[in-house]
Structure formats: C-alpha cells, structure tokens
C-alpha cells in the first residue's frame, strides 16, 4: 500500500529529489515511533508469563527410598498432585496380563514406567475426566474395582498401571516426564 502511495505522490508532485527525501524522513520518524511502541509492549506482555521463581520449580527431585512396596505418596509438582507408587509384584502381574488392545487408552505398563524400574508408577493425580484428584494413593483410601485409583467425582476406575478401565474418563492418568537420577532419586519435569 505504501509503495502505491509513493508512486502516486511521485507522479503528482513531479519526481523531485527533495520531495522524496522529505517523505522518507516522515516515514522513518513514524516507523521509529511504531518500533518503539512495539519494543515497549514486549515487557508489558512478557511480565504475565511465568516468573523466575515459578519456572525454578518446574522440575522437582523426589527421594523415593522410604516408599515401601505397595505404598504410594502424594507430592506436588507444578502446583498439581503427583502420585508415586511402588507396585507389588502382584500388581505388576495384574497390570501386565491385560491385553493392551482391549483398553480404552491402549498403553502397556512398560510404556508408562522406566525399564528396570517397572515397579515405580509415577502419574499426575488429576483425573482425565474433569480434573478431580482420584483416591487410592494414601493408605486406607478406596482403590477402585481394579486396585489402582478411583475418582469419586464421577466414578472413574484406574488400574494398577493408572490406566482408565471403567467410568467416564477418556484417558489414562498422565505420566509426567520423569527420570531416575539414581536408584532412589526421581526427577520429575
């Protein structure tokens, strides 16, 4: 558009150097105003992003040495509950014998754990239906029909691999990015 105007103006006012130079200065001054305004907008927009202290907590390290077989803990990661569960051999066997193809969200236990550490199930404690916190991590809580987790809000049942088996939830409990830094130290995030 600007170039169209330029042509029109040049032909109208005769192609004098002075005219073009004058226009150039006005355009340059206006462009600088625009660039300056945009540069000022950057921090105004950027300030709403996660601040340094929040980002610093984006990954946490959890010592799992004290979780005995069959127990689970709840911890907080990115302001959300995380369940870390030390599966018993029976629970592992339970989870492994299910035919993956028959599941609503087909995943095997191995897909959801680290090789050699299949007994450590790390999942978000957020039901994939509407975001309630399922029961089953703390001792004495209902674990649902499949021995894993049970969401009391709308009755979703998760098995010992945290996979959805019954109820309205569409997906398995989310496994966050995690890694073993040592035999007992898990880094989440």
């Amino acid at each position: 558009m600007a170039s169209d105007n330029q042509v029109v103006m040049d032909t109208e006012s005769g192609v004098e150097d002075g005219v073009r130079r004058r226009d150039f200065i006005h355009i340059a001054a206006l462009s600088f105003t625009g660039v300056g305004a945009a540069a000022v907008a950057l921090p105004l927009v950027g300030q709403m992003g996660a601040s340094a202290d929040v980002l610093a907590q984006a990954s946490i390290e959890v010592d799992v040495a004290s979780i005995e077989t069959g127990q689970a803990i709840k911890t907080m990661w990115r302001k959300q509950p995380v369940f870390i569960r030390n599966l018993t051999p029976a629970e592992i066997a339970d989870a492994s014998k299910v035919a993956v193809g028959t599941l609503r969200d087909p995943q095997s236990l191995a897909d959801r754990t680290k090789p050699g550490k299949e007994n450590w199930l790390v999942t978000l404690g957020v039901c994939t239906h509407l975001g309630c916190v399922p029961l089953g991590a703390a001792s004495g809580e209902v674990k649902g029909e499949f021995g894993g987790y049970f969401c009391p809000c709308h009755g979703s049942h998760y098995d010992t691999a945290g996979r959805i088996r019954k109820g309205p939830a569409p997906l398995n409990l989310v496994v966050p990015e995690f890694a073993f830094l040592s035999d007992t130290l898990v880094k989440i995030g």
Partner: peptide, 13 residues
Amino acid sequence: EHIMRNVNGGWFL
C-alpha cells in the same frame, strides 16, 4: 522485591 527479582522485566516496570 519479587517484582524486582523474579517477574519477567519486572525491574524495568
């Protein structure tokens, strides 16, 4: 101080 140290560009604002 949180604004000055942690918020993105907070010290400038």
